[in-house]
Structures are given as C-alpha cells and as structure tokens.
Simulated assay, not measured.
Amino acid sequence: MGIDEPCSPPAPASQSAGADLTAIVAGLRLSREVTHVVRHRGHIRLLPSRAALEKIRDGLFAALFPSHYGCPDLTDDTIDYYVGHTLAQALIALREQVRRDLMFRDPADAAHDAESLSARIVREFGAQLPALRGMLAEDLQAAYQGDPAARSMAEVLLAYPGMRAIIHHRLAHALWQLGAPLVARLLASISQAETAIDIHPAAQIGRGFFVDHGIGVVIGQTAIIGDNVRLYQHVTLGAKRFTADETGALVKGEPRHPIIEDNVVIYAGATILGRITVGRDSTIGGNVWLTQSVPPGSSITQAQSRQAEA
C-alpha cells in the first residue's frame, strides 16, 4: 500500500504468527492515546507524504535539468514541452503537500484558507525556479572549477552528492521562506538520507557554494554562509550551547550557528560552533575546533585553535 493511498483496513484477523493481536492492538492504543502521546496538538492529522515529496523532487530536478535528471532523448523540439508538462505535474502535487503542511500546523486558522494559501505559496515558489536555477548553475560551476577530478559538469550533476544536496537545499529553503516549513524539512531529510549531508532548510547559503566529498557535513538552522564558500567532508557548522527559558524549555530559532563570510575554505573534519564569524578570505584547516570569531584573511590550523581554547 502506498503512503498516500486510502488506508482501508483489511478484514480482522484473530491470529498472526501466533500473536494475540487483540491484546497487542489494545496495548498500542494505550501507548498512542494515553501514556506516550506524540501527536501534534493531540489530534490525528493528514500529514505531508515523504513518498509523494520524493516524486515531486524528481519532477523538480527534471524541470531544472531536463537532460540530466529527465529524459535522455530530448530534442530542441520536445524539451520545452517536457519541462512544462513535468513541472505542471510536480507543482500540482506540491500544492497538496503544502496544504497538508498548513493544516497540520494550525487547522483552526488554516481550514478556511489553506487551499488559497497553498496555491499562493506554490505559485510564488514556481516563479522563483528560474532564479534558483541560475544560482545552481553557479554552484555547479564552483564545483567543476574547484575539483581537479571533475571532468565535466554532467559528471558533477549526476555523481557529486554535494551538488545534489545543494539542489535540494535551494528548493527547500525557498519553501521554508514561503511558509511551508514541514515540507521543507522533509525535503532536507530526503536529501540527507541520499547524500549524508545535513543542511537545515532555514540556513542561508550564498552563491557559488561547493561541498567536496560531503559525507558528514552538518549545517545548522541559523547558519549564514556567504558567496564562494567551499566545505569538505565532516565539517560541522553547529551550536555551542542552547538557551533555555524559565521553564527549562529550549528557546527556538535563536541565532546560534556560525556566520561564514565570502571566499572561505573549510577543510575536512573542522568543527565551528556558536554564533561566531569566520571573516572573508579565510582558510580553516582540517580537524580544527573553532569557537571564537576570526578576522578576514585568517589561516587557522589545528594547533592554533587548541592554543586559542587553552
């Protein structure tokens, strides 16, 4: 059964592999409804579908780069038709997922206008796609020029996890800004599962961004990254500490991740924590642990970072 198909239960079964289904189902209901409630606001909701979003993602990738992620035999006569048809299907499906996102967060307020609001969000998202593709072309160029192993841009598009991760992020970030945060988070999660690169959709990333190799890279929610920044594998742009309110609950959305200015290179294994600034044109060496701001033009090695922490 697909995740978006009607969930009509089959005929009751009294036994399954010798188990007492009645007792198990009753125990699960007790956990679900009483002892371990995890539902948002305590109600059953029609949630955005991860499986549906994977198909939508495929359509958006194909519309952005049709000869790479779409049909291999497109011609000048057919490519625009293909892009239009593929994009229309993807945006229609996306509108339903955005509607579910709106209804999930606040059904009382969203019930009367979820349809019109989801239509507006998707319409504005679609209008941004040409500009997003322009940014992705710059990311692609940065990857190709920044890696001597890259023999063609097609190779980067098809085989580099960093490129796939930034395509996902550009799309997810646009949806986050337009007001579809759960859909954006699911897109980011799909990307992380495929690429092992974890970028929060709220993170702000400038033009010409390149993640080389990429495995284990983590970029937190409030991180700000400038133009022409390059990261290597296992880089973390994370939080040093979390502010709690008077009840002990963590304060949400507080700026807590680094600001990386333009033209910075951060080598493998570096961990940069807290709301600090890495100045433009700096180089952060491998395995550096950095919790203090550094001025423009800095070159930080592991030994230097240890001395600063001492």
Rank of each mutant, 00 (worst) to 15 (best):
D4T: 14
C7M: 15
C7W: 14
P9R: 05
S14C: 13
Q15K: 14
A17S: 09
G18A: 03
A23M: 14
A23D: 08
A23R: 13
G27I: 06
R29Y: 14
R29A: 10
L30I: 14
R32L: 15
V37N: 03
L46T: 12
P48V: 08
S49H: 12
A51W: 14
A51F: 10
A52R: 13
A52L: 14
R57I: 14
L60Q: 00
L64Q: 04
F65P: 03
F65C: 06
H68I: 10
G70Y: 00
D73G: 08
D73R: 13
D76W: 10
D77Q: 12
I79Q: 15
D80W: 14
V83T: 09
G84S: 13
H85P: 15
Q89W: 07
L91Q: 03
I92C: 12
E96V: 14
V98M: 00
D101P: 11
L102V: 05
F104A: 12
R105V: 06
A111S: 10
D113I: 15
A114K: 02
S118A: 05
V122A: 00
E124I: 08
G126S: 02
A127C: 07
Q128C: 11
P130V: 03
L132A: 08
L132R: 02
R133P: 01
R133K: 11
R133N: 05
R133Q: 10
A137W: 05
Q141W: 11
R151H: 09
S152E: 03
V156C: 07
L158H: 02
M163D: 05
M163R: 06
A165S: 07
I166E: 01
H169T: 03
R170I: 03
L175A: 02
V183R: 00
S189N: 14
A193V: 15
D198P: 09
H200N: 04
A202E: 04
G208H: 01
V211S: 00
H213M: 10
G216A: 09
I219D: 00
G220M: 10
A223V: 07
G226W: 01
V229W: 01
L231K: 04
Y232P: 11
E246K: 12
A249Y: 11
V251A: 12
K252L: 04
E254P: 13
P255H: 02
R256C: 00
G269S: 01
A270L: 10
L273I: 11
G274Y: 03
R275Q: 05
I276M: 06
V278T: 00
D281T: 11
D281E: 12
N287W: 09
V288P: 03
T291V: 05
Q292H: 15
P295G: 01
I300Y: 01
T301I: 06
A303L: 13
Q304Y: 12
E309M: 09
E309R: 15
